[in-house]
Write a protein that binds this DNA or RNA. Sequence first.
RNA 1: GCGGUCAUGGCGGAACGGCAGACGCGCUAGCCUCAGGAGCUAGUGGGGGCAACCCUGUGGAGGUUCAAAUCCUCUUGACCGCACCA
Length: 830
Amino acid sequence: MLNEKYAPHEIEKRWQKIWEEKKTFKVNNDDPRPKSYVLEMFPYPSGNLHMGHVRNYSIGDVVARFRTMNGFNVLHPMGWDSFGMPAENAAIQHNIPPAKWTMDNIANMRRQQKELGLSYDWDREVTTCKEDYYKWTQWFFELFYKRGLAVKKESAVNWCDTCNTVLANEQVIDGKCWRCHHEVVKKDLSQWFFKITDYADELLKDLSLLKGWPERVKTMQKNWIGRSEGLEFSFDCPALGTKLPVYTTRADTIYGVTFVVIPPEHPLVEKILKDNPNKEKLEEFCNKVRNTSDIERTSSESEKLGMYSGYDCVHPLTGHKVQIWITNYVLFDYGTGAVMGVPTGDQRDWMFADKYGIDKIITLQPKDKTLSLDTMTCAYEEKDGVLVNSAQFTGMEMHKAMGAITDYMEEKGLGKRKVNYRLRDWLISRQRYWGAPIPIVYCPKCGEVLVPEKDLPVKLPTDVKFTAGAKSPLATSESFVHCTCPKCGGPATRETDTMDTFLCSSWYYLRYADPHNDKAPFSPEAVNYWLPVDQYIGGIEHAILHLLYSRFFIKVLRDAGLVKIDEPFTNLLTQGMVIKDGAKMSKSLGNVVSPEEIITKYGADTARLFIMFAAPVERELEWSDQGVEGSFRFLNRVWRIVAHFETELDQHVTSYDTSNLNEEDKKLRLVLHSSIKKITEDIEQRFNFNTAISTMMELVNALYNYKDTAKTVNAGLIYETISNLLLVMAPFVPHITEELWNKVIDAKHSVHKEPWPKYDPEAIKVDEVEILVQVNGKPKDRMMVSTSLSKDELGKVALDSPTVKTAIGDKKVVKVIAVPGRLVNIVVKG
RNA sequence: GCGGUCAUGGCGGAACGGCAGACGCGCUAGCCUCAGGAGCUAGUGGGGGCAACCCUGUGGAGGUUCAAAUCCUCUUGACCGCACCA
């Protein structure tokens, strides 16, 4: 006998225990069913789950359970991206060891996840800060190193003073640190880089393979990689005894060059300064520019400043003198680090020339107009025009001229075509403690040496001071720093930096395939079976960072023969944020709703249902306490209607005569089968979980309606309806459905192991349908007609309607459009 | 500046080019109840009408179409990404 009242807490605790004991969601690598890999981005163990997590995992859980019910062997794992700064900050502030802080948080968050009833195979849990994981992260570093893709190089890098570490380009948002939001400064340091730029072209090109990714994410990656085609050529600088190479995408404006600009970082500056009469002032200027913050320096709004170097170079085509200027508006690490200045073709150059009185030459103008320096007030930056003052290219259309001039320069050996990328190499060193140590040893004799594979992992020491300042805390551990050289056996020191945590997360989805392997990061059989991830689900904030790094990793691993795939994630679903009162939930705004609080009040099923119902997955979800009540009310309605029909259900009438149904039965059966169809399509094809749920609500409403209107209860139909209702609801609200299934349908088998229901096409066929009759597009009448009518017959019936006749009056019927099953539109004139 | 997304009742949101507002929240009225912050029933875009009904309506202006929230052009606003990348 069912309880009269729905009591979520008792039900949920009980079933969670049973699922855990029976290992209901355990998955095997050898299973005859087709595989499906459903993955949610693993969390950083910050301490507590927030609503964003709940949304992420609820979506993943619905997809995973739906696929299981549809006959797939589904891999649905969970783990912890557990290296990172917050653990270290806890150590500094509260004197708690980072490992303890992290593991405590993991335990708490895992408990919260279990309270949500998520269908993870917990036996496959991975934790990136554990030795059995970071051993392989280090192993991958070595793989990259051996393939020449991990290199140490000196360069101006992003430095966050608050976090005391360097950052990758991708981790600098608007000139600020992605974690602490403090301003990032440039520092010249020797750091480890992964050469992601070697794969720039493929990372761009293969975006076209990702048909299951949102356009938005692909566009963001495309822009981030930023491929551009242009011409690289050099200006001769006889006075400095060297050449000055520049890069341009506007070869057509080459005859308009009147100066060349270089940044203070440019190697030529040293030569310029030597014996320069203006040395002091130039040096002062260079230092001033170098000390400007990065945001200021790279903002398009900041003033363009420069100083004439005192040296000129020679235009390769005209032989004219071209002044060399040192400026603050050129990026040293893009292209050749020097740029040609064309005042009439580029607004920045125009303003710069105006300010410092540099010559301007018009070399491009509109087809139907002649430009003059006397009347021009800004550069001509239009995307069409004709060349003037450009020797043999004068009169040529600009796009044609771009090619022609480039060809000419190549023929004469003056320059060559060049492709440049905005993407920079991935800086992976971090001067932090809580990360995987870089497995490198520095030997006075042998230089840079890899730690042999058999000695991995290089373990994190525990005898460190966290207040090391600009150096990694690892440097404070004597026992860690001093070692012997693996090559010569002499005394050596270890690299004290750790790896960016994004490296740990670039391969975790591979480890789930084979999580306990201690011989290799994974076996080829396991990854070949499970990978690629069929459905990846996570926040848009990783559009570039994690998703780009992971794609890069897979390409390198593929080239190393470790995997056979080109891309890690076939389909990507980017969920929207959970907000409240129009703003992101945050402690400082005081608008945080904690998942635990909701689970305590209504249970996990309500929380999951509401979060799936309140908004389409990709859009922002506005949290509404009243909305949650509505979801809870719905589950209560389900419970009561099942309880109401318990007597009929107990008879287990699993079949009935469908050819002899009364009106109420027919109606309910139609709603049932069209609901199954709609819900299946909503989940499978479009991820329209919100409308899938509204369809379930309609089905429940139909059941209530049946209860009130049916003169007799058809026990077979009720059994069919309620068992199917529980099945389609199961992925969304696993506890209540399991309980009801167990009590009234099948006490022996889990609802979550049942096959997904199929609708009966016969049941959704109707003999008669209501169609709308329009006259000139305006609704005039509606009528029940047989579905077997042809278009012509439909038109005739419509024209016969008295209402329609009145509406037509004495006007002339011009055309009749009939759409079977929908409407007839009669076009009249006069 | 470049690239992208979006705009529908009081609110969250539905709607293969085919009856706009499904479903839910909120609100109103009624029933049930000692009571209700429980449950049930009905109503709920705006304007008009006693009424059957009529007019109007998807940010704005045009266009395509028998038919437009949906397609096209322009425009306004909001949000997001990149941004001195030569």
